[in-house]
Simulated scan of single mutants.
Amino acid sequence: MIDFKNFGKEITKYFSDNVQYEKYDLFYDFFFFEQGINKSYLEKKNIDPNAEIEEQKTYALKKDDVKSFYNYAVRGIADDGFKFSGLEDFIKGDFNFKQMYIAGILEKYFIKYSSNYLIMSTTPIDKNRGDWAEYESGRKTIEYLSYFNLYNGLWTFYTKNLGFYYDEIWFAPASDSKIYLEEQKNMFLGYPEYGLQLDDQGIVAKNTTSNYMKPWYYIAILFAISILSFIIALFKFKKYDFK
């Protein structure tokens, strides 16, 4: 509880005490109401009794309607022609629950990923399951094939020494926080691919991301092949002037 309280203070300070505006979408999950024309509805009071066509007096509310009102009150412009009296004060006052926003931030950006890490770093993998055997077989096949794909190894050396491997990461246009590393990869280039390495207890090793063939091996092999081919060409054609 103390950690949650301190985290709330940090978030509130970071967003200049305006978390509701900055993270308004996190409150959508807390919209609950009974649907139906007799339970949740809008009632139009200023109906013209002399109108030729009878106007509809009540409108059934949907969750999207509530989102629309909420978005308008939090982020809307005062002169856009759509306004309910007292709505803005209600949303920004009585409907402003900072604890729920803080909980939403924790749930969306922290709990899921920290829980996955905790499970992977403490739970042994059942090697007797068929999906693990299938994964291990597939990884070994790809690993063996990569040894002979020197062209891919050349591009792996290139991508290993630039991009997000050296903190040159960026946010996707539609992302407000999470960094999608996979989307930053060029589909026409090769990247280092590691396999899951287990420790003696069957738990994923902490250094498993280093379990891949180092790209500079490919460069060394290509360089050796180039030198050997050059020497063979010299002895074969007896030509040293390169003309």
Rank of each mutant, 00 (worst) to 15 (best):
W155C: 05
T159Q: 03
I231V: 15
A78V: 14
K62G: 13
Y165P: 01
K214R: 11
N128C: 01
I77V: 15
P124N: 08
L150K: 00
K23W: 10
L181Y: 14
Q20I: 12
S175P: 00
T141W: 04
E88G: 04
N186M: 01
G81V: 04
Y117K: 13
F157Q: 05
P215W: 05
V74K: 07
D48N: 15
F235I: 14
K62S: 13
L196R: 06
K238Y: 07
G76L: 08
I227L: 11
L222W: 04
P124D: 13
F32Y: 09
F148E: 03
V19R: 03
S115H: 10
L234D: 01
I2Q: 12
R129Q: 12
D48Y: 06
I37A: 14
L162T: 15
K67H: 07
I225N: 07
E143V: 08
W170P: 00
I219N: 01
P49A: 01
E143C: 09
D126T: 05
L234F: 08
F97E: 09
R139A: 15
S226I: 08
T208S: 15
Q35D: 12
D167L: 10
K108N: 09
Y28T: 05
A174M: 06
I91F: 07
F110W: 08
D65W: 02
Y113L: 03
N211A: 10
F110S: 06
E107I: 03
L196C: 01
E136G: 00
F110G: 03
G104Y: 03
I219M: 10
W170L: 01
E52N: 08
F188G: 00
L222Y: 06
F69K: 02
G93C: 05
F110H: 06
E134C: 04
F32T: 10
Q99E: 15
W155R: 11
N38A: 06
K108R: 15
Y151E: 13
D3V: 12
G86I: 03
D3I: 13
K9H: 02
L222P: 06
E107G: 10
S210H: 14
L198H: 03
D29V: 03
N161H: 15
A220I: 14
S85C: 02
G153E: 01
E52S: 10
S121Q: 12
F110D: 03
R75L: 15
Y14A: 11
Q20R: 11
D65Q: 07
G104C: 02
K236H: 13
R75F: 03
I102F: 04
S146K: 12
